[in-house]
Design a protein around this nucleic acid. Structure first.
Lengths: 237, 237
DNA sequence: GCTAGTGATCTGTGATCACAGCGTGAACGC
DNA sequence: GCGTTCACGCTGTGATCACAGATCACTAGC
């Protein structure tokens, strides 16, 4: 018999399958905006790029398709969906509702530790956004970190998972927009909303936190919709 | 060239793959409670039962695993998760939050048509529940119909999809419970909540609708938790 | 009688093959 | 010169094969 204590240290050697790895890689590509709406994907090509067979990529893509993050056209082409304005609006409304709740709960029951993490995340984003030449990729990542630092404090694992998926769906559109209009970072909209959210969470004010997050999401959504780059008509492709 | 009008009638001949079919079949098994927590699943056996190869079943299961509806143990066994009390509570809280929002929105912007559909669904459930010997399987289905008739009126496709997934996760536990305690139907808790929800939606009272749905969910969750059949300790298996 | 070892069997995971459908481009016909 | 067609290549989907690991029943040994 081996040492029980030593075994307890590695609770579960994570059985990470190639499918999981491929899923994580594709998710990252989508979340970071390196995959834009309309971009196509090929199982065989992706598999070659990852250095595996098509099987794991296929399952990963299948999951993303099921989640609506990718779509497969009747012509058997996998691509990241091009959202219509209406679809995007519905997605934003859903985000406002769901993330608003998470923020409210987070404000009401955050611990000091969680509050510290949120403070640090807010500061990190702020310092990058106020920099003279902010790195867009990093800013997006830091914004994401801040939001999820807040949502994590709601202590509702299923809710956080839901939000993760919503971000995956909205990611490509938002990142594409930010890439096209980097100056938006300077306008400080997000900074104001973040500050308001942080203050609300510090003061355990649920509805104020919810409102701040909602405003943050709505700002971005309105801006994207106002640019009019989204399809206004519906039509399968 | 064929008639354009005729083509428009069948907007998209649904390219239903075997994977989609398998997914739908498994979802139905889970939602209707024919698959209980702890039940195991084998790819090869399921494939044989469906009369297809393992491939489609494998992808369908993979999706459900990704959604947390099924889990694959390190011992390579697929099964429907046995939720701990804590996990179940978190799931119920999430449902209360999300479905509450959907109900509130539904109440505020339902059309007459949608209201009619909700009324019919409520009446259908009531007549079955008030029957002397209610059919549990049918009652579960009618309850589901009513809830989704309400949620559909919120007009937020992503939100409805989220709720669909939440129901898939909670389904086995709830159905298992209902199967064990059919008398709960007679107590009329659900009936009262449903009536309150219907009245709120008729009166376009969002917060009342939200409260009614939340109470309905909480009743069921509290009842299940009070029975103490759920694991109280956590531990991977 | 009970335990430890051991092999048959079944598991999901990954790779490979087969196929029908669609897109694309070049060559042919008018 | 321009439009049509046809063939090639690539696509996702489904089936099958290969494999490592885990379970479980059975047996040998104490």
């Amino acid at each position: 018999m081996e040492s029980v204590a030593a075994l307890a240290d590695l609770p579960q050697l994570d059985r990470r399958t190639l499918t999981d790895t491929a899923y994580a890689a594709l998710s990252d590509l989508l979340a970071s905006g390196r995959l834009a709406p309309g971009d196509r994907l090929s199982l065989r090509r992706s598999a070659a790029a990852f250095g595996v067979s098509v099987m794991p990529v296929r399952e990963a893509v299948s999951r993303l398709v099921a989640e609506g993050v990718l779509e497969v056209a009747p012509s058997r082409i996998i691509r990241v969906p091009i959202l219509s304005a209406e679809t995007f609006r519905a997605l934003a409304e859903t985000r406002i509702a769901v993330e608003g709740i998470a923020a409210a709960r987070a404000a009401e029951r955050r611990t000091e530790t969680e509050l510290d993490a949120i403070r640090r995340a807010e500061a990190a984003f702020r310092s990058e956004a106020e920099c003279r030449e902010p790195d867009r990729v990093i800013a997006v990542q830091l914004n994401r970190n801040l939001h999820f630092a807040i949502y994590s404090a709601c202590r509702l694992a299923p809710l956080i998972e839901i939000i993760r998926r919503l971000w995956l769906k909205a990611g490509p559109v938002i990142n594409l927009d930010l890439r096209a209009c980097p100056e938006r970072l300077h306008q400080g909209f997000a900074l104001r909303r973040h500050a308001a959210a942080l203050a609300a969470i510090e003061g355990r004010d649920g509805s104020a936190a919810s409102a701040a997050v909602a405003a943050d999401i709505r700002d971005a959504a309105d801006f994207i919709l106002s640019r009019g780059t989204l399809r206004t008509e519906y039509g399968k492709d």
